[in-house]
Design a protein around this nucleic acid. Structure first.
Lengths: 245, 245
DNA sequence: GTAGTTCGATTGTCCGGACATTTGCATTGA
DNA sequence: TCAATGCAAATGTCCGGACAATCGAACTAC
């Protein structure tokens, strides 16, 4: 196996990034089979005309992604795993769209309200200060799927109802220059109340999947707090957790 | 602010790790307040008698943990976030114990069975090959909390019923030298069947929180597959998702 | 044959330096 | 007054080298 690797030094793309992308593509494509050794770093660096730290940086980024494993004294090998693409912090809208489900959104509420104690604590703003409140019904194939209630700090972005119905909240945030970083989520279940049941076309007492989430941007600011309710027959959460060492 | 930092060069602990631990402790302890600059890398390196790459490695590890943010041309600052400790891949047993709940386990089944198609696919073993099957009832304060059904590949570790009742599965795996790396989880909800209801002291049709998980070690091997059912009144999932870039 | 030892291979850690890129601010100019 | 320019500061990228720690396998001794 002679893996074709090359870097373009005239490109503004960092060299280590070029290399890591090529390696990732090779793994994804099957050119590098699970369990196979990657060849030692020194030789790889020499072959590409790069220094060892640069090669290490490329490899390390793939190790962090869980695609490679390094073993001292042995070498670096491709992980032997079914899981190719770790699931990340995702948007329900994007999830549905990439699943080919043609999502639709109906905005029920889009207003500004004083923050309750709960919302204020989650967003890190003063109690009774103004926050956006939006409530949406998310549908797929015309069937209700989830009821979404979100709160956003003021002056973060302008929430146009038409835009909210055309796309997802995360996408609007990214478009407004907000870099999402992490989210703290709580997932539970409970029986539907009468009003919830009606909104979601379920019966009273039917099990609902609930999710509460606070999303943070890269500066650690809370940019969104939400309480969502999903129909468990239509949706379940799928994600990958990594051990942090 | 004169943060006290020092490294011990005679220690076998890597220098970058010593530094990152001290910085993390300072953030946790409040000596470094959110939003405050960390001082530039060059000066920090000089003060500690370290090279810049070593200091960068320490800082980078904290950036990966979400505690710091770097901005080119500005500096490195402490993240302004309520979330101090990102939740990691956790064990129900440990969760309960650290919450002071004195967990107990009752082993219902502990045997070896041929792998069904579903189990074989999850664990990456041949269909009908031998796998361990354990079913456990997890209690807290004497109250049933969850019903856990797990499958493990053979010859991974010996599953002693007494040990299983004394501690959690993850802890047994770690003690056997298995380095857990990641887990793919699916969380959903549904109504309890009659037998499930009886096991968990719920009523038939009551909402249950369900979780399916495949856990991988650092070589990418699947080391555990499980189907769990939780009483939503007693337990909910709380975790933090990071955006992977 | 088996257990212990040695040795080569490979990654882990660390250094000191160089230049590029981006940011924020002060200065300058219209 | 306001916008454009220039400058300093900080992180981003990259280099080439050095030594340490660990693993696996071949080898040796019993």
């Amino acid at each position: 196996m002679e893996l074709e690797l090359s870097v373009d030094r005239s490109s503004p793309v960092p060299l280590y990034f070029q290399l890591s992308q090529q390696l990732e593509a090779a793994i994804e494509h099957g050119a590098l089979t699970p369990g196979s050794l990657l060849g030692n770093e020194i030789e790889l660096a020499a072959r590409l005309g790069l220094s060892r730290p640069t090669v290490r940086q490329a490899i390390q980024s793939l190790v962090d992604k869980g695609l490679l494993v390094r073993r001292r004294g042995v070498g670096t090998q491709v992980v032997h795993s079914q899981v190719k693409r770790p699931l990340e912090l995702s948007s329900l809208y994007d999830d549905l769209e990439s699943a080919g489900q043609r999502p639709a959104t109906k905005v029920i509420v889009n207003t500004v309200v004083p923050a309750s104690a709960e919302v204020a604590a989650a967003l890190g703003v003063a109690e009774d200060s103004d926050v956006h409140r939006i409530e949406r019904l998310r549908l797929a194939h015309g069937e209700p799927m989830a009821y979404l209630c979100n709160f956003l700090p003021p002056a973060l972005l302008d929430l146009d109802t038409a835009q909210l119905e055309a796309t997802g909240l995360y996408r609007l945030m990214r478009a407004a220059g907000i870099t999402l970083h992490s989210a703290r989520q709580t997932i539970g279940a409970r029986a539907a109340t009468a009003t919830e049941a009606e909104r979601l076309a379920e019966e009273e007492g039917a099990p609902l999947l609930t999710m509460q989430r606070v999303t943070f941007d890269d500066t650690g600011r809370a940019v969104e707090y939400g309480t969502h309710m999903y129909r468990p027959s239509r949706y379940s959460f799928e994600f990958q957790l990594l051990v942090r060492s």
